[in-house]
């Protein structure tokens, strides 16, 4: 068994695949520089990310997969589920091993495991397109905090850019401590340093636009007025809007 350590980027992982083929590694587990494994290995191989190697692997995959299939691989990379890199490797091995496109081989566990992980990410990126709640600051920035299970920012970037083309916005992933910021021209990745007291009432009134509270309150009122009490179905409500997301949803945080 060998542990392959890479830098945590997608290019890094693709380079790792290149190395695995080159050195004919068998029985691989993955580690990243900031996520070292504690178990015992017979050896460790450290990957040096290489654009050329990465794009050779990527082009090989492109020749054998549909766009959606390739996207599924990338989504799985962002899923952060247990063993995601190993699931990806098994899938890629299977892809290169076969002469035909194997995406439709649903009976195969390599194909199925990847779909399962990718689906979690797809669902959550859809949810984040829905659950982002922007707040307007005094200097006309619309900002939102999210804490998703998966690393979805790269997947929702283009949606928000095309939709909110005429307003400056920032979506910050508080779990992964980075955000995406649109300055009316391009979207860039940013890192911010919040104080520990972030989110307190005093902080927010200080930076928020004077109309902001009013619209939040309007939204809360709308949310409760549009509910039909006689049809109450909490189970369904929770299924669609799981509790773990409530923290950043204005309508679930009454004042």
């Amino acid at each position: 068994m060998i542990q392959v350590v890479y830098d945590g980027t997608y290019e890094g992982w693709l380079t790792a695949v290149f190395d695995i083929y080159q050195f004919k590694f068998n029985d691989v587990t993955f580690g990243t520089e900031d996520r070292p494994s504690t178990s015992l290995f017979t050896g460790t191989h450290t990957v040096i990310t290489d654009q050329q190697k990465a794009s050779r692997v990527l082009n090989g995959l492109k020749a054998k997969l549909t766009t959606e299939g390739l996207l599924r691989l990338y989504r799985t990379f962002l899923s952060e589920v247990d063993q995601s890199e190993e699931i990806m490797l098994q899938f890629v091995l299977h892809v290169f091993d076969s002469k035909v496109n194997i995406e439709g081989d649903f009976g195969n566990s390599n194909v199925w495991n990847l779909r399962k992980a990718a689906r979690i990410v797809k669902r959550e990126s859809y949810r984040m397109k829905a659950f982002v709640r922007f707040k307007l600051t005094k200097d006309e920035l619309y900002y939102a905090l999210i804490e998703p299970d998966c690393n979805v920012l790269p997947l929702i970037k283009s949606h928000f850019r095309s939709r909110y083309a005429d307003q400056r916005w920032l979506i910050y992933d508080a779990k992964r401590k980075y955000g995406i910021y649109y300055d009316l021209e391009t979207v860039s990745t940013v890192q911010l340093h919040f104080h520990d007291t972030k989110g307190t009432a005093a902080d927010l009134t200080e930076i928020c636009d004077e109309q902001e509270d009013f619209f939040q309150e309007l939204w809360r009122r709308y949310f409760s007025s549009t509910n039909i009490e006689a049809r109450k179905n909490v189970k369904l409500h929770l299924q669609h809007m799981p509790r773990r997301y409530w923290k950043n949803l204005i309508e679930k945080n009454g004042q």
């Binding site: 829905a130 509910n227 039909i228 179905n233 409500h237 299924q239």
Partner: peptide, 9 residues
């Protein structure tokens, strides 16, 4: 896109 879900689901 469904942005929220009321208590009636």
């Amino acid at each position: 896109i469904c942005h929220a879900f009321t208590e009636d689901g």
